[in-house]
């Protein structure tokens, strides 16, 4: 996984509530067997007309937001389907930090597995950053310091220390878990006397 430490750039404001993962990446693009190449389909139904023309009214199609590195969004961002295609599409577009008042659980988890940082701020701060976003003002984030800097104002945020550590170092979760393989082995040893535990073959 790519590490995440500091990032500066343009912010796109998507103030709608409950932006779901179906909206982030619609079903027809889930048929891929790859992780890459989804950026052009990010928010597909908002970005393209039925005839597949670019919708110039949508923020991610406009200068300078077509180069956004951040999204600032309404409550409960990423709700619905567990599709990890959502963070893959964001990342492929160039967005690796999302700021909102709240995130849906599965999406929130999926972000951290892909070097995307979801940041939770309170509503007042989200609205402030959203206004700056609309003016096309660049912001910066420093994960180590747990702060966003926007127009000389500092917004502090909380993050789980383990997740922070993994993001900063781009660590592979599976590798870390397998360092404890002996514990998994002994857990399984205890199960071995429960014959009912393993499903019958079909």
């Amino acid at each position: 996984m790519k590490s995440f430490n500091k990032l500066s750039g343009i912010v796109a404001s998507l103030p709608q509530l409950n932006i779901d993962t179906d909206a982030i990446i619609p079903k027809q693009f889930l048929k891929t067997i790859e992780r890459t190449g989804l950026g052009k389909h990010l928010f597909h139904e908002k970005r393209y007309s039925k005839e597949n023309n670019l919708n110039e009214n949508f923020v991610l199609n406009q200068e300078p937001w077509n180069k956004s590195k951040f999204i600032v969004a309404g409550d409960n961002f990423g709700c619905g389907s567990s599709r990890e295609h959502a963070p893959w599409a964001l990342l492929d577009f160039g967005i690796s930090c999302i700021i909102s008042t709240s995130f849906a659980d599965i999406f929130y988890n999926n972000c951290f597995k892909n070097g995307v940082l979801p940041v939770i701020l309170d509503e007042k701060n989200v609205i402030e950053i959203s206004k700056l976003a609309d003016e096309g003002i660049e912001i910066s984030i420093d994960l180590e310091e747990q702060q966003i800097i926007a127009q000389n104002k500092i917004y502090k945020f909380d993050i789980d220390p383990y997740r922070k550590h993994c993001l900063l170092n781009g660590l592979d979760d599976i590798g870390i878990t397998l360092e404890n393989e002996n514990k998994i082995n002994s857990y399984e040893d205890k199960l071995s006397n429960k014959k009912w535990y393993v499903p019958e073959k079909i």
Binding site: S82, R83, P87, I106, N110, D173, I174
Partner: peptide, 10 residues
């Protein structure tokens, strides 16, 4: 509970 693809691999 539902999980993402990275967790499926995990």
């Amino acid at each position: 509970f539902g999980i993402g693809t990275s967790e499926v691999e995990h």
